[in-house]
Design a binder for these strands. Structure first.
Lengths: 237, 237
DNA sequence: CGCGTTCTTGACTGCTTTCAAAGATGGTGG
DNA sequence: CCACCATCTTTGAAAGCAGTCAAGAACGCG
């Protein structure tokens, strides 16, 4: 799913994603392009937004991975959702008072402000579609944590992440980047890093995935999908 | 379950909740009141919205409990979120194409259409606040399923549900209705009904809760809160 | 090359599930 | 008013998935 078309204007992953969510006009693409020229960078482990802290303006993740995090006093930690390039932080439409959770950078993350959108335009539609997808992925995460085994959680999450990255044009066939340690994976999936390790080995032994060096290959996407009844997320009927 | 205040205009739980989220004008209260005169009822186990099915219009839960549900082919089931009186289904502002999940009635549920709101008015603000709360509760549910033990999940969920029902004026002190079987609780909490049963007994033995006959009493709210580091959900700083 | 982080591995514990079946409970019709 | 049925709750024993603790191997970076 490369995002290079035959014609010149090659877009960044973030713009590629929004463009995939609604047919953006030239003016809207321009606005996004300009917004991206004014980025700020956050280093790994650093906070992008604090829980309950009103944040400046709605933003777009231009590059890098981040995570919404809930930490407990005893050290337990749960990553509530993973933020990928093209994802929005804070709704550009509805100005919310408070950030609902803390957001932490996983890799280097570059952010830019989300351009204001004409409510009737396609950019607004892309923003809305993005919010709708976020909601779907969140519900999926609940079902994953509530009812799937460790084995299934990993498979399901990898498929979902592959699908999300594809929207931003960041996958190549069955390959995608995966800049996360097994400990971070554990925090996403509600497991321990030891058990993630053992389960990944099982998946490797079965020839289903190839995970290493910060990237993942889904060797048998079909079989993986069957394991968890995975169906792509759709917004349109 | 009475929600009576000292002054004449007594509102339904649903209106009480929205009123608590933003200071509604008389006109807005009227609009809500009129909307409630035109309800439809859904019986337990029946579908309120189907997954991926475009639904008619944004609605308000006037009374009764419902749940967003994800079912698996092998019979596993996860309740993704519980809908209580005053909760909104579908965003009244942003018209979304598809329902992200199936919604099923737990008790008898009455629904009415959500009145259109002037984007600058307080009703719109209440709708936005409701959506923001939904988001917070969803993140909380993720953390609960991912990192809390069965014991903690039950405590945390009971506290959250008490808080939510209080917004709608449906609690009395530490009492609130709980029209759910242990099997449904298990489906919410990602456990088995057998284990929910055993864990509830433990909580009863410890004198922390009193659960029976469709209602719950949180006997030691303070201690329960400490068990799970519970802090009320806030929208304002 | 050396150090810190990440990945692996092993042994053991334990929370939660599974399977089965026996009590309660509540509503219904005779 | 009670028998009866369906549903819900409770209990027991056994199995299993995942967590804990600890230590060694591998990797990446300066």
């Amino acid at each position: 799913m490369n995002f290079r078309s035959s014609s010149p204007p090659i877009h960044s992953p973030a713009i590629t994603r929004l463009k995939a969510l609604a047919p953006l006009s030239e003016a809207e693409l321009d606005a996004l392009g300009k917004a991206e020229e004014n980025c700020q960078t956050v280093r790994p482990h650093h906070e992008i937004a604090g829980e309950g802290i009103a944040f400046a303006e709605p933003s777009v993740v231009v590059s890098g991975w981040a995570g919404r995090v809930r930490s407990f006093a005893d050290g337990r930690r749960q990553i509530l959702s993973v933020l990928l390039p093209g994802d929005l932080i804070g709704q550009p439409q509805v100005r919310q008072s408070l950030a609902p959770t803390m957001i932490v950078a996983i890799t280097d993350v570059t952010l830019c402000g989300a351009p204001e959108a004409d409510p009737a335009g396609n950019l607004a539609r892309a923003y809305a579609a993005s919010a709708a997808l976020d909601e779907s992925y969140l519900y999926r995460h609940v079902a994953r944590l509530g009812r799937l085994s460790a084995y299934e959680r990993i498979v399901d999450w990898l498929l979902e992440t592959h699908e999300r990255l594809t929207l931003a044009g960041l996958t190549k066939e069955d390959w995608h980047p995966l800049p996360m340690t097994q400990e971070l994976l554990a925090d996403v999936l509600g497991l321990t890093s030891v058990h993630v390790n053992r389960t990944l080995q099982m998946l490797r032994r079965e020839g289903l995935i190839d995970l290493r060096g910060g990237s993942a290959v889904l060797l048998q996407k079909q079989r993986l999908s069957e394991i968890v009844e995975y169906r792509p997320t759709r917004l349109q009927p």
